[in-house]
Design a protein around this nucleic acid. Structure first.
Lengths: 245, 245
DNA sequence: GCAAAAGTGTTCTCAGTACACCCATGA
DNA sequence: TCATGGGTGTACTGAGAACACTTTTGC
């Protein structure tokens, strides 16, 4: 059985990358560029999420992972399927229509959207054949298709999810400082947190492991390093049925 | 433009119904029955979710609402799209294959799953042409396709969601007692809650409106009735960024 | 008057929050 | 020695949790 594409089902990947230097949450986008063969007029020049059609013999999850790997070379990255998008007219504007005609895909495509969490530094954008580029999630360029909507919904989901699950650590290196963690929360949620309270709260968690190690090569007082223990977290974890409505 | 079905994309609806009498959360399922034309042997006789293929010109949400209305006659019911299922081999067992062959649909179908929240009493199952029947979510019959999996994932999502959003009131009549609400939480979450604490907590919410009315026709002390005000809830609502990991 | 469920108060503990200064280090 | 960010303690407040008896009603 050959490996056929399903022409009306795709996955789209919202790749969130956290940049610890600029303390910003970014989205990885690829350039969508098309010029007319007649007069070299630029017909389409904007950005889109990376995504592709699903193969007959792969699961949706595999499909998303494949797309991510093609773009970044990375595997085993945290991913979450968060929503399917399938409005009959989700391709509305002129550029989308030109593009789809050129690519010869089905107009009525359902896309299953995923988001991934990683560190921007893990992706080498300069050598990237898709001209991938990071954009701050709060300052996105012009986007094709319904990708603005998809990104915003992914971001909303991420904001909720990061309060409930320890996915924040997917955005940080294995060894991090308490302030690093605080920075991530502040970037994602757009809030500021009291450092003393945050620090106390985090250090008291048993799955935040104190390392016998400090930052090196910083031109200031080197900070204490910690790691996140998934094992301890899993062991401790028990749902607390706190009705917060 | 005619109204064509998309043969590889469907929606499936997990219809949750709360039964205040038995204090149980139920799922509405339809009978899947097929007998051989040769010897009347029963080939398939089990239960499945209600679902159907998506039309070319409708959104996924519309599709789900249409399927629900066909089954129950109800519109404007709370619904949530919670996940897309699309394993190439999600139709694994013999009965599924017999069934799909009979129905002449695509083997590789992606289904977008929704769940709905309502009261069992709002559905007249006796007159139902699909032989729909309520089953307690904790005591499901033999299920076709991957519908067991879909129901369990819907249920997990519901458990999380009901702690964060006031969707519990979708499962109750407009006028309810405090104990009714407690019963719903206890049924869904499978826990028991201290009545005094729960009562205090709920009554103190401004969107739980005291009515000048008590239960009638009960053979015991009639309880005070309350209603939920969506308006007040919306006005008060503000995200509290409580990091609960 | 009795069965059955409705309704009620207090105490304790713990987590969240507000808040300002000293410390360690590299340059 | 100074600039920079790292790191610390205390008091207050409010919410959650534990816990058992009285009240109201219909029959």
């Amino acid at each position: 059985m050959e490996n056929k594409l399903i022409d009306n089902i795709s996955v789209d990947c919202v790749v969130f990358g956290y940049d610890a230097d600029t303390k910003s949450l970014n989205v990885l986008l690829i350039n969508r560029y098309l010029e007319s063969k007649l007069n070299n007029e630029v017909l389409v020049n904007d950005y889109v999420l990376t995504g592709y059609h699903v193969y007959e013999n792969e699961t949706l999850d595999e499909s998303a992972s494949r797309v991510l790997e093609e773009l970044t070379g990375l595997t085993k990255i945290y991913k979450k399927q968060f929503k399917a998008f399938g409005d009959p007219n989700r391709l509305m504007n002129e550029k989308d229509l030109i593009w789809v005609k050129n690519e010869d895909f089905n107009l009525r495509t359902i896309t299953v959207a995923y988001y991934f969490l990683l560190k921007t530094e893990d992706v080498d954008v300069d050598k990237n054949k898709y001209k991938a580029k990071w954009f701050p999630v709060n300052n996105l360029p012009e986007l094709g298709f319904d990708h603005q909507k998809i990104i915003l919904e992914a971001y909303e989901d991420l904001k909720v999810k990061c309060l409930q699950d320890p996915i924040i650590f997917e955005l940080l290196p294995d060894k991090f400082t308490i302030n690093d963690v605080q920075d991530v929360y502040e970037s994602i949620l757009g809030i500021s947190i009291d450092n003393r309270n945050f620090r106390r709260k985090l250090i008291n968690k048993k799955y935040i492991v104190f390392l016998d190690e400090k930052q090196v090569g910083v031109s200031k007082r080197p900070a204490q390093l910690y790691m996140f223990s998934k094992d301890i977290y899993k062991k401790m974890f028990q749902k607390n049925y706190l009705i917060s409505i």
